[in-house]
Design a protein around this nucleic acid. Structure first.
Length: 292
DNA sequence: AAGCAGGGCAACCGCGAGAAT
DNA sequence: TATTCTCGCGGTTGCCCTGCT
């Protein structure tokens, strides 16, 4: 048998709140408080509403010092940064933004910020499949704001999928090794590259490796991103290329990963649960590394 | 002017965690 | 210790508004 419902759904009102209901709830809570029991509150307050509905209405709209709309750029950056580090934990993010509710931030992210982020990564109209220039000069400024180089990041530091996502978008001169399955990050400040790896399980690391190159070339105010698959070893071992020196990857042959695919990966990451990895954990095809 | 599509957002749903019994 | 109850959260739904055809 399932859990008993928190209220009699047949006898509670649903849908938008009327000004009268708002006034009743606000008045009751300001005078009596919640009493630590939302379930019984609507009855005491004379409302035909579910306790959960009352709680939501109070927390999101009626409690004092709530702010709606007009997110500032600073708030945007905070959201980006926190999302990159902790994922879709909206209540935690809301705690960092005075007067904002988790619901507001969630809606803002889903309807605007996510699109804005994707847009900043959009290639120019004439972009080549495997070579692109960021469409906005602010692209790297924004990303750099999110995750500035941190020399304290050291070998084996855990990295969330979202951090992996953000790191991938960074155009900074640094090297990071991210093993998606192990959550391991290796950061070598004396190198100029960024390596991102994904292996389904550590036992097969030695036989199932693929490497994808993602390199940036800065020239004056512009930056060119290049995505290159430099090494791919299929499960059936039909392909096998050895890589003698990581540095040689920069001259590898450009293959078939374009910015569109990268964007799709990021996009799917944004819509998946916070616990899922940036790359499909269950996929059975190629495994790869990103080299930045 | 009417119909349609898409976006924005308020509200609901269902689950997990922790407290209470 | 097991069961029940409540809270809080993230994901999803559905309504309303606006702009386009």
């Amino acid at each position: 048998m399932g859990r008993a419902p928190c209220c009699d759904k047949a006898n509670v009102k649903r849908g938008p709140w009327s000004p009268e209901e708002d006034a009743k709830l606000k008045d009751y809570i300001e005078k009596q408080g919640t009493g630590g029991n939302w379930i019984s509150l609507p009855h005491k307050a004379g409302l035909r509403r579910c306790g959960k509905s009352c709680r939501l209405r109070w927390l999101n709209y009626l409690r004092p010092n709530i702010r709606h709309g007009d997110f500032t750029e600073e708030e945007d950056n905070i959201i980006y940064s926190l999302y990159a580090s902790i994922g879709s934990r909206w209540s935690v993010i809301a705690a960092h933004l005075h007067g904002r509710t988790d619901n507001d931030i969630k809606n803002y992210w889903n309807t605007k910020l996510k699109k804005k982020l994707i847009a900043t990564m959009a290639p120019p109209p004439n972009h080549h499949l495997a070579s692109a220039t960021p469409s906005s000069p602010s692209h790297y400024n924004m990303i750099n704001t999110l995750l500035p180089y941190n020399p304290s990041i050291s070998t084996n530091q855990l990295l969330t999928p979202h951090q992996g996502m953000m790191m991938t978008m960074m155009g900074q001169q640094q090297q990071l090794l991210y093993q998606a399955d192990m959550g391991t990050l290796v950061n070598s400040p004396n190198r100029n590259n960024f390596i991102m790896s994904h292996q389904e399980d550590s036992q097969e690391q030695s036989t199932n490796k693929g490497i994808m190159l993602l390199s940036d070339v800065r020239s004056g105010s512009s930056t060119t991103s290049t995505v290159t698959r430099v090494k791919m070893e299929h499960r059936d071992h039909h392909h096998h290329e050895e890589l003698e020196d990581e540095r040689s990857m920069s001259s590898a042959v450009i293959e078939d990963y374009g910015m569109e695919e990268i964007k799709q990966l990021i996009s799917s990451s944004c819509t998946s649960s916070s616990n899922s990895l940036w790359f499909d954990e269950n996929k059975t095809e190629d495994k790869f590394m990103l080299y930045y």
